[in-house]
Amino acid sequence: MNTYEQDSRTIALTVLAEIAEVDRSKLRGDDRLREDLGMDSLSSLELLSTIGEKLDLDLMIEDAMDIRTVDDACAFVESQCRARA
Rank of each mutant, 00 (worst) to 15 (best):
Ala20Met: 11
Leu37Ser: 05
Tyr4Trp: 01
Ala17His: 13
Ala12Gln: 09
Asp7Glu: 14
Met1Cys: 01
Ile67Gln: 04
Gln80Cys: 12
Asp30Ala: 05
Arg34Phe: 04
Asp71Ala: 09
Glu62Tyr: 01
Leu55Thr: 09
Asp72Val: 04
Arg84Ile: 00
Leu13Pro: 04
Arg68Leu: 02
Leu47Trp: 13
Asp23Trp: 11
Leu13Val: 08
Lys26Met: 11
Glu5Lys: 02
Met1Asp: 02
Asp66Thr: 02
Ile67Met: 09
Arg82His: 13
Val70Ala: 05
Ala64His: 03
Ser43Trp: 06
Ile11Arg: 14
Leu55Pro: 12
Arg24Asp: 09
Val77Gln: 01
Arg24Val: 12
Arg84Trp: 02
Glu21Gln: 10
Thr50Asn: 12
Leu47Cys: 14
Thr10Leu: 10
Val15Arg: 15
Val77Ser: 06
Ala85Asn: 08
Glu35Ile: 03
Met39Gly: 06
Lys26Tyr: 04
Ser41Asn: 08
Arg84Ser: 11
Asp31His: 13
Thr69Arg: 01
Leu59Met: 08
Phe76Ala: 03
Tyr4Cys: 00
Tyr4Gly: 00
Asp30Arg: 03
Arg84His: 09
Gln6Asp: 05
Ala75Ser: 15
Phe76Gly: 02
Asp71Cys: 02
Leu33Ala: 04
Cys74Gln: 07
Glu78Tyr: 00
Ser49Ile: 11
Ser25Ala: 14
Val15Ser: 11
Ser44Thr: 03
Leu57Asn: 10
Glu35Arg: 08
Phe76Arg: 07
Glu35Thr: 06
Ala75Trp: 03
Glu78Gln: 10
Thr10Cys: 05
Leu16Trp: 14
Glu35Ser: 12
Leu59Cys: 04
Arg28Leu: 09
Leu48Phe: 10
Ile51Asp: 13
Thr69Glu: 04
Ala75Thr: 13
Arg9Leu: 00
Ser44Phe: 09
Leu37Ala: 06
Ala75Lys: 09
Arg24Cys: 13
Val22Ser: 09
Asn2Tyr: 03
Ala17Gly: 14
Ile19Ala: 15
Ile51Leu: 10
Ile19Phe: 12
Glu62Phe: 00
Lys54Thr: 14
Met60His: 00
Arg9Ser: 08
Leu42Pro: 02
Glu5Pro: 00
Glu35His: 08
Met1Leu: 05
Asp7Trp: 01
Asp58Arg: 07
Asp72Leu: 03
Cys81Arg: 10
Thr10Met: 08
Tyr4Lys: 04
Glu46Gly: 15
Ser8Trp: 05
Glu5Arg: 00
Asp71Asn: 15
Met39Val: 02
Met65Phe: 11
Ser25Leu: 09
Val15Trp: 14
Leu33Gln: 01
Leu57Gln: 10
Ala83Gln: 14
Glu35Gly: 03
Gln80Arg: 11
Glu53Tyr: 13
Met65His: 08
Arg32Val: 00
Cys74Lys: 02
Arg84Tyr: 05
Met1Lys: 02
Glu78Asn: 04
Asp56Gly: 08
Arg84Phe: 07
Ala12Leu: 08
Cys74Ile: 06
Ala64Val: 06
Ser25Gly: 15
Ser43His: 14
Ala64Asp: 05
Ser43Pro: 07
Val15Gly: 14
Glu5Asp: 02
Ala83Glu: 14
Glu78Leu: 04
Leu55Met: 10
Leu42Gln: 07
Gly38Val: 07
Asp58Gln: 08
Thr3Ser: 00
Lys54Glu: 12
Arg9Gln: 07
